[in-house]
């Protein structure tokens, strides 16, 4: 890795200024930045360590939601009692991500900024073509080994899968990303690749993530994150779903439902179509299957990733079943 200057940000404003400097990159947990620097994907001139900033790692619950400081560690959020009680999908997404060590290092803000695991993106020497790394250079993945690449939200420029787990839960639960003064809905924070896959997040130079805000809802309280992968642990999702549901007093009619997908799309993938057909419906196996089939509307297959389509539909269906009230067939 190229050598760099190292300094510690003295304040949030200091960090913000650093984020606007050309060649400077913020270092939080380091699990993405140092990894990518070793791969040769990132080559910062200055690394600004923000982990010593105080007050950005708190988890503050209030009656309308929770505000999680950007520097809170994944492990701390995963085990927070309030998170487990009111936003279980968030906790489940977190403890199923990475490993215990990485979760002790990685911060919530940094986790949202993690980059794709596309093998072609991660190896600039072997694969010079990558529109994400080098806009206009092409995409080495298309036509290559694509079993882990996205089926949703792809473009001719990029088919790289967003690797996030937490982000999927946040998008499902209508979270907001707090960028100092500005707030962006989680769904809008993650950008489609389109013709500009190098731009992954709706964050401007000089902005930093300071917190994540998740609103309280009955659906969030009754939420889950289901992650399917070949290895039992320490692997990215082959497909995942975050589902939150609220039922009418009858215990079977769906009042509110949120569904987002992971491991299959270029960004955390909210599926309003699934939600729309289930809202107001009584839960039944037929209704679930009908709705789950809508999860992959518009999917495009690249090479050998066809399996992801049926897989994620089944993951959605199972996640819904896992959250249904007891006694409903």
């Amino acid at each position: 890795m190229r050598n760099f200057a190292y300094r510690r940000a003295g304040s949030v404003d200091d960090a913000r200024r650093a984020a606007a400097e050309a060649g400077a990159m913020l270092l939080a947990g380091g699990t993405t930045l140092l990894d990518l620097a070793k791969c040769g994907v990132a080559a910062p001139e200055t690394v600004v360590d923000i982990t010593h900033l105080r007050g950005l790692d708190t988890i503050a619950h209030d009656p309308s939601g929770v505000t999680i400081g950007a520097l809170a560690k994944m492990s701390a959020v995963a085990t927070d009692r309030g998170i487990c009680a009111h936003y279980p999908a968030v906790s489940e997404a977190l403890w199923q991500a990475a490993s215990a060590q990485l979760r002790n290092m990685a911060t919530i803000g940094g986790n949202l900024m993690q980059r794709t695991r596309c093998a072609y993106f991660r190896d600039p020497v072997a694969f010079p073509a990558c529109n994400k790394r080098n806009p206009g250079s092409g995409c080495a993945a298309i036509g290559g080994v694509t079993r882990n690449h996205a089926v949703l939200g792809t473009s001719q420029s990029c088919i790289a899968t967003n690797p996030g787990d937490l982000a999927v839960a946040l998008v499902a639960l209508d979270a907001e990303i707090v960028l100092g003064e500005r707030r962006v809905a989680a769904d809008a924070f993650f950008l489609l690749p389109g013709a500009t896959p190098q731009r992954e997040h709706a964050i401007e130079p000089g902005e930093i993530i300071t917190a994540i805000r998740i609103p309280v809802s009955a659906a969030a309280c009754n939420s889950t994150y289901l992650k399917v992968r070949g290895r039992q642990s320490y692997e990215f999702a082959a497909a995942s779903a975050a589902v939150g549901m609220e039922f009418e007093a009858d215990g079977r009619t769906i009042r509110d439902i949120r569904v987002a997908l992971g491991g299959v799309a270029t960004k955390p993938w909210r599926v309003h179509a699934v939600e729309a057909v289930l809202k107001g419906q009584e839960l039944s196996p037929e209704a679930i299957d009908r709705a789950a089939a809508l999860a992959t509307e518009g999917a495009v297959i690249h090479g050998d990733n066809r399996t992801k389509i049926s897989l994620v539909q089944r993951v959605v269906a199972r996640a819904i079943i896992n959250r249904k009230p007891r006694g409903i067939a």
Binding site: A119, D123, A126, G143, G144, R231, Q232, S233, Y234, E235
Partner: peptide, 21 residues
């Protein structure tokens, strides 16, 4: 096959069993 390259040349992509397996 286009490049004759093993692309999962690391322990995150060449998967060996973890304790949980």
């Amino acid at each position: 096959r286009r490049h004759g390259r093993v692309i999962n040349n690391n322990l995150g992509d060449y998967l060996i069993p973890t304790n949980a397996d």
